[in-house]
Write a protein that binds this DNA or RNA. Structure first.
Lengths: 144, 144
DNA sequence: TATGAAACCGTCCACGT
DNA sequence: ACGTGGACGGTTTCATA
């Protein structure tokens, strides 16, 4: 990981479909050199994936909410398997504090949100916060 | 937005660098047709961006934490400007409940986390939860 | 949306540093 | 170990219908 690799990572975080050619021009090295570096960054696990980022409200998912959930340590394996299968859950983190799980979720309606929360109660108590707005969208980390 | 567009969005969410050729083969239409569809999806705002997803622990950002913060309504503009300039904040949501903001953050050490929390206190009281593990990584929404 | 042609881009290889 | 330049093969785009 040197200076050029960091720049590649910054560029690709900002635009995951940037062509090798464009990168080679921005970095003043040739295309094969860029190609090799990216390959290594992928192989060494620096780059986990490339993703298109959608505007979910455009496909009717207008409700975004964070749900905190109490899950006993013994029920974690069961819970993980369950939660991975629910498409509305975009992220799930195991955290410190009285609620052990934090879920980031999206729904078409508050009714759908309510349905999931009701389901989740079989694992433990919940605490739900609905999102009004997102001043900082999930973004990359600029490396310097 | 028809069936083919949905499939394109699903494919690109899973692999943002998928070539037009590969997509055209998967969808049984020609490459120019795919190209035009993607262009429209971008223009109409369905696709907001393409991003490389990094393993942040690989670059020393081992601490991930959610910080809840009380911000008075009158100080929101000031807060938004401030928070956008901090690279450690990957996401910021304005939410319901006693704490009006939820921040997703990453740091090299708990010391750095402590420093930011101390800074944030000029806006209001905070509540911090450190992440132990992330069973569901920030993922796309599979459209059906 | 399909077709073919042209332009473009990415990869491979041999070589040099 | 890393970068370069040329050549090849594959991909995207354009014009046309």
């Amino acid at each position: 990981m040197n200076d050029i690799d960091q720049k590649i990572l910054n560029y690709l975080q900002a635009n995951g479909r940037l062509s090798i050619k464009k990168l080679s021009e921005a970095l003043f090295i040739t295309a094969p050199a860029v190609s090799q570096r990216i390959k290594k960054l992928e192989e060494n696990g620096y780059i986990k994936s490339y993703n298109a980022n959608l505007d979910l409200t455009k496909i009717g998912l207008n409700i975004k909410a964070f749900i905190q959930l109490e899950v006993g340590p013994d029920r974690k394996p069961e819970f993980y398997k369950y939660i991975k299968a629910i498409p509305n859950v975009l992220e799930c983190d195991c955290i410190t504090g009285p609620y052990s799980m934090l879920l980031k979720t999206v729904f078409e309606s508050t009714q759908d949100l309510d349905d999931l929360v009701t389901e989740l109660h079989r694992f433990g108590s919940t605490n739900t916060q609905i999102v009004f707005s997102t001043p900082v969208q999930d973004r990359g980390y600029y490396i310097e």
